[in-house]
């Protein structure tokens, strides 16, 4: 048990800060995923054919290949692309991306492809009459979307978005392959250096279980809140 003490003798503080990194990573990439996902869904529903096909391709590809490949692509290839883009603008030097940013982008892109599908489905499921009613009130198309369609779509989307949060949270574990000091990475390092096979992984598993169960609880509260007006 001494191995879990706070300070230089134990891994308690390292594990604590690593959990904070994991949470921050999950929150940032989930937020990125939500925003991107909403725009992708809107593009899929309201844009011209070329945009539609390319966005369909994006969500199909990202959901069809392993998360690890997306992470590798950004981890090994992301800096190259950024450097090349920068050189177009006259900057000649190699740009290093911080691993946290790579993690947020990778998990965010994955999360976005899932949220996009959820948003698309829920926007489509809002009754057409709602839009017609908005038109009859002389609201502009954008306003109808902002004030009428989207709020109702979000209510429908919330349970699935909760599932995507859980997926995103679990996907952050994969970022440990890039060396970012999140829970998995730290528990692996601790296991190696202390020659203690089970303890750190079990601690890491418990942290993840704690995080997922807390988010299930919060999810239930949010669902209840949004369904207030729908109770019959």
């Amino acid at each position: 048990m001494e191995l879990l003490y706070w300070g230089n003798n134990g891994w308690g503080d390292e594990i604590f800060f690593a959990s904070l990194v994991t949470i921050a990573l999950a929150v940032c990439s989930y937020a990125l995923g939500l925003i991107l996902g909403l725009y992708i869904a809107m593009g899929k529903l309201y844009s011209n054919k070329i945009v539609k096909i390319s966005l369909d391709g994006y969500t199909t590809v990202v959901r069809g290949i392993p998360e690890l490949l997306v992470i590798y692509l950004l981890f090994f290839g992301g800096e190259n692309i950024i450097t090349q883009i920068a050189s177009v603008f006259g900057y000649d030097g190699f740009i290093n991306l911080p691993p946290f940013l790579i993690g947020v982008l990778a998990i965010g892109f994955i999360s976005a492809s899932y949220s996009a599908e959820v948003f698309r489905g829920s926007i489509k499921s809002v009754h057409k009459g709602q839009m017609e009613a908005g038109l009859s009130l002389c609201l502009s198309k954008d306003k109808i979307f902002d004030k009428i369609t989207l709020p109702q779509a979000i209510r429908i989307a919330i349970p699935s978005l909760g599932n995507i949060w859980q997926l995103t949270l679990k996907d952050t574990a994969l970022i440990s392959v890039t060396g970012l000091a999140e829970i998995m990475r730290i528990s692996r390092v601790a296991t190696n250096s202390e020659r203690e096979p089970f303890m750190f992984f079990i601690v890491a598993a418990c942290i993840f279980l704690f995080l997922t169960s807390v988010s299930t609880k919060i999810q239930k509260i949010i669902e209840k809140k949004y369904n207030r007006s729908m109770v019959r």
Binding site: K170, D171, T172, A173, L174, S176, M184, S187, R188, T191, P197, F198, F201, I202, A204, A205, F208, L209, T212, S213
Partner: peptide, 14 residues
């Protein structure tokens, strides 16, 4: 409730 990676780690490295 836990990532697959942790289960693989527990299996192999644990």
């Amino acid at each position: 409730g836990t990532p697959l990676l942790i289960q693989i780690y527990l299996m192999y490295f644990g």
